[in-house]
Every structure is written in C-alpha cells, then in structure tokens.
C-alpha cells in the first residue's frame, strides 16, 4: 500500500469544513466533513479557493438513474399509449439491478406528436437509447424520452432473427430477407461509423 493513500470508514471525520469543501462520498455536520463511504480519501486542489475532499471506492459505484442522463434500455412490452422498458446501462456503466421505465407515446418524437404510433416505433426486445425526464410519480416508473435525433432504437432483430440495419430515421431493414420494419431509429454517432 502506498504511504500517501489514506483509507477511511463511514463516519470518520476527515477535516474541518473551513479547510476543504465536501465532495462526493462525504457529508458535512457541525462544521466538520465526515466520510460516508469505505474507501480512499482524495484531495483535489482547485485554483481558486479550498481543495475538494472526496472519498472514492474502487468497486462499481452505486449508480441510480437521474434526470437528464442518457440510459440504454431494453423494450419489454408495448401498447398503444406507452412502451415499458428495462434500464440496463447508465451511460456506459451497467446497472447491478434492473430498473423499470416508461416511454410514453407523446415522448417518442419531437415533431408530429399526434401521428406517432408506438407499434411503428418500438418492438419488444429492441435496444433503445433514451433520456430520463422524470423519476415518475408514485404509481409509475422512471419516465424516459426519445424525442431527440440521437435517441431511439439502436439495435433490433427482424422476424427472421437477424440484426437489422438502419436505413432511415424511421425504417430498418433485414439484411437477409430485405423486409423493412418501422422503428424510431437513433442517429448513429460519428465515433461508431467505420471509415
């Protein structure tokens, strides 16, 4: 173990609130900064003002979907008003347990909301990129939206079981049988294009 590394346990007092600012993995109480995780103490100095003290863990952080983050989901069931999805990834971090979300009909597209049909946007089993817009009220799950060009279906399988290729913003085609199916297709990011 390096001598500069300092480990702490939850409840351990790190320093005074006047010496540093509380970062992630800490909490402030009675003018002192305490640790709230079992991990390694890190102190990052900023140009102006106090350094930031935080506690980091090497293992996966306990991530939760929050408003505004882009999540990767799998469609589980659809009906005429919404699509139910399982949130699998937050950004590029896999979730330890599945959280359920809902994509409502009016949140699928930014334009022509009255002409949207859920059956022509998603199918069960599709992998969808979406953005969290709400934690939901007491009786529903996380509310997600795909009303952006970069959001929508990124991977889907045809009836023949083949992975379909996106050919336009609303169509995907099977490379084997050449049948076209309707999806709300996400615009492909430049870093994934092969040149």
């Amino acid at each position: 173990m390096e001598p500069s590394e300092r480990f702490c346990v939850p409840g351990e007092r790190l320093c005074s609130a006047e010496e540093a600012t509380a970062g992630s993995g800490t909490y402030t109480r009675h003018g002192f900064i305490f640790s709230s995780l079992a991990g390694c103490v890190e102190k990052t100095s900023e140009e102006s003002g106090l350094p930031v003290v935080s506690v980091v863990r090497d293992s996966d952080p306990q991530l939760l979907p929050d408003v505004g983050v882009v999540v990767t989901c799998k469609v589980c069931s659809i009906n005429s008003r919404f699509a139910k999805v399982h949130i699998l990834y937050i950004g590029s971090t896999p979730l330890k347990s599945i959280f359920r979300g809902t994509i409502r009909k009016e949140d699928i597209r930014a334009t022509e909301k009255d002409k949207v049909e859920v059956y022509k946007s998603f199918r069960p089993g599709d992998i969808v990129l979406a953005k969290v817009i709400s934690l939901g009220d007491s009786q529903s799950n996380y509310l997600l939206t795909t009303a952006e060009n970069e959001l929508g279906v990124v991977a889907a399988r045809s009836d023949a079981g083949m992975q379909m290729v996106p050919i336009s913003w609303c169509e995907m085609q099977c490379p084997r049988t050449h049948t076209k199916e309707f999806r709300k297709v996400a615009r492909v990011q430049p870093e994934f294009l092969q040149t």
């Binding site: 939850p10 409840g11 909490y27 305490f34 995780l37 079992a38 863990r57 293992s59 306990q62």
Partner: peptide, 11 residues
C-alpha cells in the same frame, strides 16, 4: 452495508 458501498453516516 459499509462494504456494499452504500452511503452511511456511521457504523
């Protein structure tokens, strides 16, 4: 609980 990485006030 501390080992699981949940944020806590104290043990």
């Amino acid at each position: 609980l501390a080992d699981s990485g949940v944020q806590m006030y104290d043990l």
